[in-house]
Amino acid sequence: MGWLFSNRYLVLRRLVQVSILLFFIAGNALGWKVLRGNLSSSRLLDAVTLADPFALLQIFATGTMVSVEAMLGGGIVLVLFAVIGGRVFCGWVCPVNMVTDLAGSLRRAVGDDHSSPALSGFQISRNARYWVLGLSLVLSALLGVAAFEWISPISMLHRGVIFGMGLGWTAVLALFLFDLVVLRQGFCGHLCPLGAFYALAGAYGFLRVRHLKDHCTLCGECLKHCPEPQVLPMVGKHNGSVLSGECTNCGRCIEVCAERAMRFGAVSRAKARQDHEGG
């Protein structure tokens, strides 16, 4: 029971991630109508069309319009994640999260976490993902196809799980190894333009992790487990909420904190900023 409580968000996230995939698989294999299609575009309960807003943005960059139905579907998804805030998609929906989390836990198991210096000399900025985001749109415009969708390991994974993997497993393995031995949180935390897109979209949402300094014993567990530790600059220094959209709202920091110095809260960005300024 204690284990379940201290991994409650992790278990919940895996449940959400896996059931979304299972519904898609059942949609294809058994004809279930709960969710059909895949994360690029889907039908929910045979009534609502959903679409990946970043994929649509790339299609628009090619100078192509899509149907109103698809645009509405993209709008629903965008508004949903923007209102909740942070990279909820990355932490709770994206199947790649399970792959990169595995690489992350293996790294932690051998003591390579954020409290230690990087084992390999290879470093790139966490802002690289915004360059990749820009590049996705530029290349879409130049090549006339949605550029990231053509190489996306995310699509290869979820499409592969639903429709058949082909050689897609090589991309997933490469991504896993990249995260495991080349760069800590390499793909999700540095390169993925979809994550960058949701970081921008979710910068003003309401769901934010809050830190209470008085509870903090400076054990550093939260920073050790956080996939984006740069969003927790206030830990041990002052009370405050996470301001950055790069936070995936995975809740890992909350459940690993024995002193309950981290919690989820519904705070607007303006309010959170005031907190920071107030110290």
């Binding site: 949609g27 889907s42 192509t64 899509v66 698809a70």
Partner: peptide, 15 residues
């Protein structure tokens, strides 16, 4: 060419 630009690869047609 337009098909390649528009297709989101969702697989709803195949389903």
């Amino acid at each position: 060419a337009r098909f390649l630009a528009k297709c989101t690869k969702c697989g709803l047609c195949a389903e």
